[in-house]
Simulated assay, not measured.
Amino acid sequence: MAAFAQSAPCWVDVQLPDLEAGKRFYGELFGWTFRACDGPCADALSDGKLVAALAAKQDGRMPTAWGVYFATDDIVATVARIREAGGQVITDPVRAGGAGALAEAADPGGAVFGLWQAGDREGFEKRHEPGSFCWTEVHTRQKGRVDAFYEEVFGFQGTDLDTSGAGESGTGGSGVDFRTWSPAGAEPGPDTAVCGRSVITDAFPAEMPSYFLNYFAVEDCNAAAGHAVRLGGRISAPPFDIPYGRMAVLQDDQSAVFAVLQPPVSGKSAE
Rank of each mutant, 00 (worst) to 15 (best):
M1S: 14
A2I: 01
S7C: 15
A8R: 01
A8K: 13
C10G: 06
W11R: 08
V12S: 04
V12L: 10
Q15D: 15
Q15F: 10
P17K: 04
L19P: 02
E20T: 00
E28Y: 00
E28V: 01
E28H: 06
L29W: 00
L29H: 00
W32P: 07
W32R: 01
P40W: 00
A44L: 04
S46T: 15
D47P: 02
G48M: 13
V51I: 13
L54V: 01
A55R: 07
A55I: 03
A55D: 03
A55V: 09
A56L: 11
G60E: 13
M62S: 02
G67D: 14
G67K: 08
G67C: 05
A71W: 11
T72D: 11
D74H: 14
A80T: 12
A80I: 11
I82N: 14
E84S: 12
G87A: 09
V89P: 13
I90K: 09
T91A: 09
D92H: 13
P93Q: 12
G98C: 09
G98Q: 14
A105L: 05
A105R: 08
G110I: 15
G110Y: 02
G114K: 05
L115K: 15
W116C: 11
W116G: 08
G119H: 14
R121K: 13
E122P: 11
F124V: 10
K126F: 11
G131Q: 09
S132Y: 14
F133V: 03
T136Y: 03
E137G: 10
Q142L: 08
D147R: 13
D147K: 06
E152D: 12
V153T: 07
F156E: 00
A166P: 10
S169E: 08
G170M: 08
G170N: 07
T171E: 00
G172N: 02
G173I: 08
D177V: 02
R179Y: 08
T180W: 02
W181N: 13
S182V: 05
T192H: 10
A193L: 04
G196Q: 05
S198C: 07
P205F: 04
A206M: 06
E207I: 03
M208D: 07
L213W: 00
N214D: 12
Y215V: 06
Y215F: 07
Y215I: 00
A217S: 15
V218R: 06
V218S: 05
E219L: 09
D220N: 10
N222V: 15
A224I: 13
V229G: 06
L231N: 07
S236R: 03
P238M: 00
D241C: 01
Y244R: 03
R246K: 11
Q251W: 01
D253L: 00
Q254F: 13
Q254M: 00
A256I: 15
V257H: 07
A259C: 14
P264L: 13
S269A: 14
A270W: 03
E271C: 00
